[in-house]
Simulated assay, not measured.
Amino acid sequence: MKTLYIVRHAKSSWKYSGIEDIDRPLKKRGIKDAHLMSKFLSKEIARPDVFISSSANRALHTGIIFCENLEYPLANLQINRQLYSFSDGYLVKTVYALDDAFNSAIIFSHDHGINTFVNKFGNTPIAHVSTCGIIGIKFQEKHWKNIKKGKTFMVEFPKNHK
């Protein structure tokens, strides 16, 4: 069995002009939400085997906060530039390429790609994954490259924890 947690990056700031989209930082609310959700997750699950983040500042900062609160070595956080995409294609490729030695993974990525992925691979329709939302899906497979439809067992958003 394989378990996947997909986390949409926390709320980012649009207040800085002249910076590239990939460099946008988290807002204060985003930082608070990332701590809130990662502390919640740390009490609910065993720490995932591998943490992977988009290279975008906002996703990476979210991942760093989750590493801290789930006591995952920051040096082991994998950064995947291809996850800085707003389609599910690279997210699917990233999951299919996971090492089968990992039974669980957590991925920090972006809107649209996440929404498409969780509806394609999970069994619970989700209209919109909010910022810092966490979706958990279990797959009855031994190999990541073989995952198809899984069972959505976690749908958590910050607004439900405030």
Rank of each mutant, 00 (worst) to 15 (best):
K11Q: 13
S54L: 02
V129I: 09
S104I: 04
L74K: 15
V92E: 14
S53A: 12
I135Y: 04
L4E: 05
K11S: 09
I79Y: 02
Y90D: 08
R47K: 15
I31F: 08
K138H: 15
K32C: 11
A34V: 10
I52A: 00
L83H: 02
L41P: 00
K138F: 12
F157K: 15
V129K: 03
M1F: 09
S17P: 07
S42L: 01
I79L: 03
V155E: 11
S13K: 10
M154S: 05
H128E: 13
K2G: 07
T3L: 02
L60C: 07
N146F: 13
I22D: 07
K2R: 11
Y84F: 10
A59S: 08
K151D: 14
F153L: 08
E141T: 11
Q78R: 15
I107T: 07
K138G: 14
K28M: 11
I79E: 05
V95S: 04
K15A: 13
V50K: 02
Q140M: 14
K162M: 15
R58A: 02
T116N: 09
F86H: 13
K27Q: 11
L83D: 00
P25S: 01
G18Y: 05
F86R: 14
L41E: 00
R58F: 04
H61T: 11
I137F: 07
V95G: 06
E156R: 14
F51R: 10
I52K: 05
D33A: 06
L41Q: 00
N146G: 03
D100G: 10
I107W: 00
L36P: 03
I134T: 05
T124V: 15
H143S: 15
K28R: 13
F40C: 09
A46N: 14
F102Y: 15
F117E: 00
N76G: 08
F86W: 11
